[in-house]
Design a protein around this nucleic acid. Structure first.
Lengths: 254, 254
DNA sequence: TCATCTTTGTGCACGCGTTCACAAAGACAT
DNA sequence: ATGTCTTTGTGAACGCGTGCACAAAGATGA
């Protein structure tokens, strides 16, 4: 999961727990699917199954929004779609800028899920002058120099960073200075932002590494003998460099 | 964040808490950067700052791996890089297949972070016959028909799904049947898998929606009067149907 | 009106994760 | 050796999130 990285200690925003907020989009997706099939009502049990969660959890989540269900019947699909959309702020238009139009940035620009739900790609920004003017996903890429203008002219408050790691913090700083207060970061770096700015990160390689951990565990469940970590004891300085295998890994991702 | 979605209730794998495992890649990245600058040792305070976490948390995390620090000095960078790499299973080679070579799949194939850390793109698979044979990121795309062969021949245990939502579950089933036990899902769907299979999902639009929620909250922070969640107490029936905002949505339960 | 049946909404208990705060451990100087 | 200083490793307290289990609420039918 991309992890929110804000120092807000326990931001129970307006009483809605963060964990619940993170699940609302899931419910919304399931409800939208039901709505398209013209299903009028669902029980917490059915909806929970569709969203892949526990039904008690779902009911408790909805209870934070208010009492929108009818006992003995369930929840009205259309009504709930509206309530969750409103709660998430999807009834309004959110202009978004994507900075860094490489492979990933271009893929994001083309991603349908963007446009669908209140999010509108207001601009694509790249530092490469050669990219300027080139259309990606039907939108002309603009140069980084224009960043501040774009943010202000369009009232953008959400920025997506898809640049290489080295440029991310700098881009982030400029976005924030220009007025952006929410950032979705795809660059493999920890971003530092002032209070009041939300950052969520999506990190490919972290996800893979977590999977690898579990995978290794499954594989070695029978034949593992731990190999006793080279006693961390007596180690003067840069003494024993090298693990049992001999050499250390290569390099880091860009 | 992409959220792990496995029904393992509390898989304290080998005693290492899930939350800690999720942070290890973060530490590893910071440590690798230090290593490249030939920094010999770091204190928990410094490393924690670089990784964007609390130092006490970092120390506790490391304590699950063993006692790798030296009191009064800190941690040996190279040694720790090795230990974490080993713990995460990055000292071995993980062949990975990417299924669904659209915009996103292609971007993933080109992503540097893949190759760098023990992960090797073993094959690119797509259902479109027109894609077959076409090279993406220097690898020829293969047709879905080959999926089972590819998995078995290469001993692939990690699969990445970057297909449209509609195809995801089916692809997932085939991957699992062929022997894949870890899946990274980019398709906006809830995947159902048998026990023993790990699924992590990365969902663009969910991340954006969570940001929108907080963004909306910030925007309305001054003009909002809280309106206290409709007192769960006295509410006759379908009485107060209307959000704090005042207006009523489309429909209501009969 | 009353009885029955379904499904919500929630009180409660439990466990994981986070953080504080401090004692133990080692480095280093004298 | 002994003392001082730094930094680790962890015991303990706390808070959030989860899930059970049940009472309350409403629908439905006689």
């Amino acid at each position: 999961m991309a992890t929110g990285r804000t120092h807000r200690p326990a931001t129970r925003s307006r009483g809605i727990p963060e964990a619940t907020v993170a699940r609302l989009p899931l419910y919304l997706r399931a409800l939208t699917a039901l709505s398209e099939r013209s299903v009028p009502t669902v029980s917490s049990e059915e909806l929970a199954a569709a969203a892949g969660v526990n039904s008690a959890k779902l009911r408790k989540d909805f209870s934070y929004l208010g009492s929108y269900g009818t006992r003995g019947v369930g929840y009205d699909v259309e009504y709930l779609v509206y309530q969750i959309s409103r709660e998430l702020g999807l009834t309004q238009d959110w202009p978004v800028v994507i900075v860094g139009i490489g492979n990933l940035g271009a893929a994001l620009a083309n991603y349908g899920g963007f446009a669908s739900r209140g999010f509108r790609v207001a601009a694509l920004i790249d530092a490469d002058p050669a990219m300027a003017g080139k259309p990606v996903a039907g939108i002309a890429v603009q140069h980084t120099d224009e960043l501040e203008h774009i943010i202000e002219d369009n009232g953008v408050s959400i920025g997506v960073i898809a640049t290489p790691a080295g440029a991310a913090q700098q881009v982030c700083d400029r976005l924030v200075a220009a007025g952006v207060t929410s950032i979705l970061n795809f660059a493999p770096t920890v971003l530092t932002v002032p209070d009041g700015v939300d950052v969520r990160k999506v990190d490919l390689s972290i996800e893979l590494q977590i999977l690898a951990f579990h995978e290794q565990r499954k594989a070695g469940e029978d034949s593992v003998q731990d190999s006793g970590p080279p006693a961390p004891a007596a180690r003067t300085a840069a003494a024993d460099r090298k693990g049992p295998d001999g050499d250390v890994p290569a390099v880091m991702p860009a």
